[in-house]
């Protein structure tokens, strides 16, 4: 049979976007086959939040005061839990190696991968947050603000965490290390995010805090994929 011609004459689609789209499609397929991980992370978020009324006080008035902190710490821990698997599975079965060899900028591919990861973990966490906030005595009117703050915040966390996920690839106790590396870097996200949420819950305008959060996201989108690409290259050695 005729096998076609060689590289010089082969028609090769060198555009970047179709590759990113392929990554998104594949990760969605994987989620459909195996939705367990996503559900576990949402479950974790719920359990952490529910622990506070049990461990602190069932009084909604008291809970409302600590609601921003509870939501953010819960979302932060749940995101970190999810990040452990960000590159691990692909590194273990050898598919991530092929990403490095496909002749496309790795940083862009990892950005696509991280974006879809956020879509499958950060976004569901965000959607869940206003509902959990209600159990902490927060009015449902605060939902849009909470959605916006957590949406931006979890996106920034996914991007920052992608660096740590790359650096800890293939290490024993990588999960613990991942948290140790990510948490200090996540401090600004936590501060701005929790403040925005607090203002929303109090019924004040969270604009300033949201702007700061948004600028962190912009910075993270610009720099984190480059660092993550360097980290993944090192992690796969």
């Amino acid at each position: 049979m005729s096998e076609g011609l060689h590289t010089q004459e082969v028609s090769r689609d060198t555009r970047l976007l179709p590759k990113c789209a392929a990554i998104v499609v594949r990760d969605l397929q994987l989620l459909v086959r195996r939705p367990g991980q996503m559900l576990q992370i949402l479950g974790f978020f719920v359990v952490v939040t529910v622990l506070f009324p049990l461990g602190y006080s069932p009084e909604l008035g008291k809970l409302r005061l600590i609601a921003p902190g509870v939501l953010w710490v819960g979302a932060l821990l749940a995101s970190l839990l999810a990040l452990e698997g960000l590159f691990r599975d692909d590194a273990e079965d050898g598919t991530l190696e092929q990403w490095l060899l496909c002749g496309q900028p790795l940083a862009a591919l990892l950005l696509a991968k991280t974006a879809v990861h956020w879509l499958l973990t950060g976004l569901p966490l965000t959607v869940l947050a206003p509902l959990l906030a209600v159990t902490l005595g927060v009015s449902i009117e605060a939902a849009p603000g909470i959605l916006l703050a957590l949406g931006l915040g979890t996106l920034a966390l996914s991007l920052i965490g992608s660096i740590a996920a790359g650096l800890t690839l293939g290490l024993r106790r990588g999960g613990v290390l991942l948290s140790l590396l990510s948490l200090p870097l996540a401090v600004p996200v936590l501060i701005f995010g929790a403040r925005a949420t607090e203002l929303v819950i109090q019924g004040d305008s969270p604009t300033a805090a949201l702007y700061l959060l948004a600028s962190l996201v912009v910075l993270a989108i610009t720099l984190a994929p480059l660092a993550a690409a360097a980290a993944v290259r090192i992690g796969l050695e």
């Binding site: 870097l185 600004p188 660092a227």
Partner: peptide
Amino acid sequence: VLALVGVINLPIIRY
């Protein structure tokens, strides 16, 4: 890589 990421973050954390 971690040290470089940290040094970019340091002023942001302090701010």
